[in-house]
Structure formats: structure tokens, C-alpha cells
Design a binder for these strands. Structure first.
Lengths: 114, 114
DNA sequence: GTGGCTGTATTATGCCACTGATGCACCATG
DNA sequence: CATGGTGCATCAGTGGCATAATACAGCCAC
């Protein structure tokens, strides 16, 4: 009843973004091919391509046609900044309101463990 | 690019839930009619009805056909419990992970103000 | 140059959630 | 019983998403 079943291409986008943010793929690294990631995730190559497309639009990945997709220069830093801004302005406010409304204490939330 | 554009019936569901949790409508109170809430929210009556339907399924609102919808007995308490459980198991974990991944400090988040 | 790997364009199809318009069933009030 | 308010069932339209089957274009190692 929540937001579990999001579009596949957005799910895959988050997987890629998380990998970049966590440093699995660093500046200049070669990313998994659309076909490889597709078969790994059990999705259609075009769906994966659609996920990659969103990063291309933001200039976070560079395409070398015939070779593959590479992490753009400073992608992790830029991605972290934009995601951080998006989180603070879009994600957090409703979450905070829900915390207040439900009477949840901050101490009850594991903020270190995860 | 986040979860801003959710289905209308879920948006309206949240509005109703928030009103109940905040005590705007208490046990036994008459809720706004589907048509009234629809015109107020600029939505279709059926869309509002679909939102109300989710509450009926959980026994949180009682329908008196030809009269209106009423807040069920103990609805606020039960709603708070289920929403709290859902928040802790479904909503919070990914949020916490994002906080960690983005390197956001808890002190940066307004948890009192909102 | 050939084979094999990349990303991409094209077209078509199926699916499902969401939304909407209309009409009907029910009830309180006078 | 007539009126005007309820909720609800039915049918249909729309759009986004995912998949599929091809085919094409670029690059590299051999």
C-alpha cells in the first residue's frame, strides 16, 4: 500500500545511482552494459537503456558508442548534491510531518545502524 | 522525480487520514461527502470514493447509505498503529539508507519545527 | 576485414492503473 | 410521496509502462 511497486526503469535507476554514490563505480569507470544489467535484473534491455538515459540527460554518464557507458567526471559529487537537494526539499518534509503526526520519537529510529 | 505525482486517490486518502489522525474528524463524526470533497479537491467523485473505499476495507469508516460516511469507533487509534507500523517497516528504512548514503547529518533535519 | 561486443532506433503489442460520465439504489426530511 | 442529499455499480477511455523482435551503427581485438 506504499511505494513498493515503482516502475522498473526507476528501480534500476536507483540501483545505478546507489552504486555510483557508494563508490562501486568511480569517475571514468565502465558501467555494466545494458544487456548485462538487463539479464542480471531480469528486465528488458530497453528498460535498462531508459534508466541509463536519465543519467545521460543529466550528463552523469558518458556514452562511447560501441564501447559502453562511463561514469562522467565528478558524477558522484554532482549526483550527491542534486540528490541531497531533492531529498531535503521533496522527500524529507512529508516524512517529517508523518513522524510528527504519528507521534514517533527520533530516538526510536535507527539512524546509525543502517 | 521523486514521489510527487502519486495517484489522486492516494493523495486524497492521505488527506483524509491526516484529518483523522489530527482529530479534525473524531469517532462517530460525519465525513465529507464524496461529491463535496471531490469538488473541493478538484477531483472526480469516483476518485474520492475510491479513496474512501480503502478505509472501508480496513473498517475505519462506516457507511450509512443515503446518509454518509462516519468515522468508525477507535479509527484514529487503529489508524495510528497501522500507519506507524507501515512507516517503520516500509517508509523509514529506505529513507534512513538515503540519509546515510547522502551523508546527511541528523542535526541538519528539522524534526521539531515541522 | 571479421567476429563480437557495445548503444540505439524502429515498430508493434499487451497490460494495467487511473480517471471519467452516466445512471441507479438508498435514506432523511418536509 | 416528492425532493434532494447520500454512496455505488457499470462501462469506457486514456496513458504510461514493459516487453518483444529486428535491424542498424560504432568500436576493438584478433
Amino acid at each position: 500500500m506504499a511505494e513498493d511497486s515503482k516502475p522498473v526503469y526507476l528501480r534500476i535507476r536507483e540501483i545505478i545511482a546507489a552504486s555510483i554514490l557508494d563508490g562501486v563505480y568511480q569517475d571514468g569507470d565502465l558501467l555494466p552494459s545494458v544487456r548485462a544489467l538487463a539479464s542480471q535484473q531480469g528486465a528488458n534491455p530497453l528498460t535498462v537503456a531508459k534508466a541509463y538515459q536519465t543519467f545521460q540527460d543529466d550528463g552523469l554518464v558518458v556514452v562511447k558508442r560501441g564501447v559502453g557507458m562511463f561514469v562522467a567526471h565528478g558524477a558522484a559529487r554532482r549526483l550527491r548534491e542534486t540528490e541531497r537537494a531533492r531529498f531535503l526539499t521533496t522527500v524529507w518534509p512529508p516524512v517529517a510531518e508523518q513522524i510528527r503526526r504519528l507521534g514517533i520519537r527520533i530516538e526510536d529510529l535507527d539512524t546509525q545502524k543502517v
